[in-house]
Amino acid sequence: MRTAIIIVITFLSIIQSIAQTSQNKNTHSLKLLPVYKGEPSEPDSTYEKKYHIEKLRFYLSDLIILNEQDSIVYTHQAKNILIDIAKPESLLILFQDSLLVSKKYKMQFGIGVDSTTHARGAMEGDLDPVNDMYWTWQSGYINIKLEGNITHNANKEQFEYHIGGYTGNRNAYRKIRLPYNGNLFIHLDQLLSQMLGKQQHIMSPGKDATDFADIFARCMSHTF
């Protein structure tokens, strides 16, 4: 009888472990979801018949997944990823290793390019200056580029944000830590409502740029 129980328990634990493996040890990903008032945002969309986003590109960098004890369980290989809402393929970051995740896991990443990378000279891939995310009149990556216009009656008013800066209090790189569930929502409505009407052109490093970087970081969440 005792042997039978041990066999059953062993059998059940094997089944459970198989189930768990197939359920959780998967190839995970991070899906970026630009939303406007909770609705998925399509590239080149106009919101509320007046806000038109022509371009939103930014660097998502140094992505890691942390467990309950804040130990790193996953480090994404690509250090700097150029996200472009006009390119749906850039909105899905597939992890290169499969891993077991729990609901208590967190993700951490940076928005922009850190100051160490800034000092390394010419880079390739997503950091290649051909991507138009590098200033040429002075050294520095553009961490976030947001461009568009607002329609007022028949008139169009431009907004243009080129956010960067990597030294001292002008450093616009922002580190974000959120619970990890595979999703990263970018709340465009919150971003536009906090920027438009206040400051519509930011084209160089400084206080306006770091304020924008703070707001942009707060417009990201793992839920709606």
Binding site: H118, A119, R120, G121, A122, P129, Y134, T136, W137, Q138, S139, G140
Partner: peptide
């Protein structure tokens, strides 16, 4: 001192 690295300096005159 606008350029922090010789690699990146060339971008300035090329694109100006």
């Amino acid at each position: 001192g606008a350029s922090n690295h010789l690699d990146m300096q060339a971008l300035a005159p090329i694109t100006h």
